[in-house]
């Protein structure tokens, strides 16, 4: 919808130019890439928009040991990447269920991190896949982990003068698998709860490493560290998991809202944890 108090719109062609606009603008300025989240409401407090869709920040590139995803890469671009599908499946899966296709055509992965809503589907996979976020300022490039980036609902550490530039995710060796699961009222809704799981297995096909992150059930995405430890050594057997997944309740603190009760979120978090661990494991063993 129309941004009724917006007075200026900047759409620079280079990152340097974008940073200098951010630094010199004196009023309330907001960065957008796709803008789909921003334009869903009239943000009367915002006086200027800095549109970063022309900075060449939409890319998916292999680097030495990791993949680089530009912050202005759209979900559709992620879905078109075989590299992501094969190596970082939880990201691909999450991109496939964000909103609907016409939004995925324009909404970006970086935008989801900038908005920092607790239910953002792009976020749990970044915890599970051990991503690093690269923030650019005029003087430096800072690297932060997702755990240190998000500080609360719709809050992150980005300060004025800083732009989220890219996401780096390490490639794994050996046998590994990942998965993303989401519970929502309907296909285009925000998540009631979501989860991303990454597992590695050893020669005996036992889980040797696990990273598990849940969204929409706490003020920020949370790692289920106890559960991660508990699945190590198992073969993701369903009966065992039924018991083990109760460990998610220690780290989540869901609220009741229009989408669901807190009680339901507690229960469904266990269900999706079990589901995602089994799926990630099946992918690791090549099933």
């Amino acid at each position: 919808m129309k941004q009724s108090n917006l007075r200026e719109y900047f759409r620079p062609k280079t990152l340097d130019e974008a940073l200098s606009i951010l630094n010199s603008y004196e009023g309330e300025i907001k960065i957008i890439a796709g803008g789909t989240d921003m334009l869903a409401d009239d943000h009367k407090e915002i006086e200027a928009l800095l549109d970063i869709d022309q900075l060449g920040l939409n890319y998916i590139e292999k680097a030495d040991g990791y993949i680089r995803i530009g912050s202005a890469t759209t979900y559709t671009e992620i879905l078109n990447s075989d590299e992501i599908y094969e190596n970082f499946r939880a990201i691909w899966d999450s991109a496939s269920v964000v909103a609907d296709k016409s939004i995925r055509n324009i909404a970006t992965i970086g935008g989801n991190l900038g908005s920092a809503v607790p239910s953002g589907d792009a976020i749990p996979p970044l915890y599970a896949l051990d991503a690093t976020l690269v923030i650019k300022t005029t003087t430096e490039e800072k690297k932060v982990k997702p755990e240190d980036f998000f500080t609360g609902p719709r809050k992150n550490i980005l300060k004025k003068g800083e732009i989220l530039k890219e996401i780096q995710i390490p490639y794994s060796d050996g046998a590994f698998g990942s998965d993303f699961e989401k519970i929502a009222r309907n296909s285009v809704d925000l998540a009631t709860a979501n989860i991303a799981v990454f597992v590695k297995i050893d020669e005996d096909k036992k889980i040797s490493d696990a990273r598990i992150a849940l969204g929409a059930v706490a003020p920020t995405v949370v790692r289920a560290d106890k559960l991660e430890k508990a699945v190590i050594g198992t073969k993701a057997e369903e009966e065992k998991l039924e018991e083990i997944v109760k460990a998610v309740e220690d780290v989540i603190s869901p609220i009741s809202d229009v989408r669901s009760s807190a009680d339901y979120r507690y229960k469904v978090s266990r269900v999706i944890a079990k589901r995602a661990i089994m799926k990630a494991y099946d992918r690791a063993i090549g099933k």
């Binding site: 719109y9 803008g35 334009l39 016409s102 324009i106």
Partner: peptide, 10 residues
């Protein structure tokens, strides 16, 4: 070439 929702496109 892509479907978009024009009410949320600046």
């Amino acid at each position: 070439g892509k479907a978009v929702k024009s009410c949320i496109i600046p």
